[in-house]
């Protein structure tokens, strides 16, 4: 049996809302440690991997590991029907592995709404990626910045063109674009520390200058999720997809991997 409860408007609900513009269907794996989800965007440019540790939920129980495909858009639609103050329960019983049950309970416990959502096949959304601690060392540059700043950069650049070039070296982190109507270049002088301050842009890992071109549509989507958190961490490599990460509590995360554009 798997069962988690959360208050309406909790972080999981916020994140599911925010990933909807890229993701329809997701693979969800539940274990005693927590709730993880993997999904590909419809054009297969972005891979999303998130993990919510059990302690971020109001209550969490998972007797046996389980894996299921969920139509996220339908689930979010159902969750939207809850009222302020409701406690939301998501449950899968061992006897029935064809759907999940979502329950809303009003704060005064006088009203309960039960809904069943059919599970779907989402196995094609599963990709093979290395353990994060092995992968992190492959990134040439990793920096952190306030999420609001990241969103602002993406918005300012998308006025001019569809693509952004992110360049990182020891002295500067820049976001730039060039279009028919002009160009924009936003430069940040980074701090260099392992303990980034919330308000600043910090270069945490630097193994050599790197620059990548990315479609702003995907970057804006990443930025949207990141604004649910104070800080966003961005990793660049010439051999791996761009990584955009937000931390959830001590051990949790949301990671977007975005395939950069390549010049032939």
């Amino acid at each position: 049996m798997f069962e988690l409860t959360m208050a309406k408007g909790s972080i999981l609900q916020g994140v599911l809302e925010a990933i909807l513009d890229l993701v329809n269907v997701a693979n969800v794996d539940c274990s005693s440690k927590g709730f993880s989800l993997q999904a590909l965007d419809t054009e297969h440019v972005v891979f999303l991997s998130l993990f919510f540790p059990s302690e971020v939920f109001r209550s969490y129980r998972c007797d046996e590991d389980c894996s299921m495909g969920i139509a996220i858009a339908d689930m979010v639609d159902l969750l939207r029907a809850s009222n302020d103050g409701d406690i939301i329960t998501i449950k899968v019983t061992d006897q029935n592995f064809e759907d999940i049950t979502i329950t809303f309970e009003s704060p005064d416990k006088t009203k309960t709404t039960d809904m069943d959502l059919q599970l779907v096949d989402a196995r094609s959304h599963r990709l093979k990626i290395s353990e994060w601690h092995d992968m992190e060392s492959e990134y040439q540059a990793i920096f952190c910045m306030p999420s609001a700043q990241f969103m602002l950069n993406c918005k300012s650049l998308s006025v001019i063109d569809d693509d952004v070039v992110i360049r990182v070296n020891e002295e500067v982190i820049s976001f730039s674009t060039k279009g028919k109507s002009g160009c924009v270049n936003i430069s940040h002088v980074p701090n260099k520390t392992d303990n980034p301050e919330k308000a600043s842009v910090t270069l945490t890992h630097m193994r050599g200058p790197v620059s990548l071109t990315l479609n702003l549509r995907y970057m804006k989507s990443c930025a949207k999720v990141s604004t649910l958190f104070d800080q966003v961490k961005i990793g660049l490599s010439t051999k791996l997809p761009l990584m955009v990460e937000c931390k959830i509590a001590e051990k949790g995360y949301i990671r977007y991997f975005v395939a950069p554009k390549i010049t032939e």
Binding site: H44, V45, V46, L127, F257, A259, K261, I262, E264
Partner: peptide
Amino acid sequence: GPKQPTITNYFGRA
């Protein structure tokens, strides 16, 4: 302009 590869160019199917 530059081309957009898919993410499966980096990560294989599980």
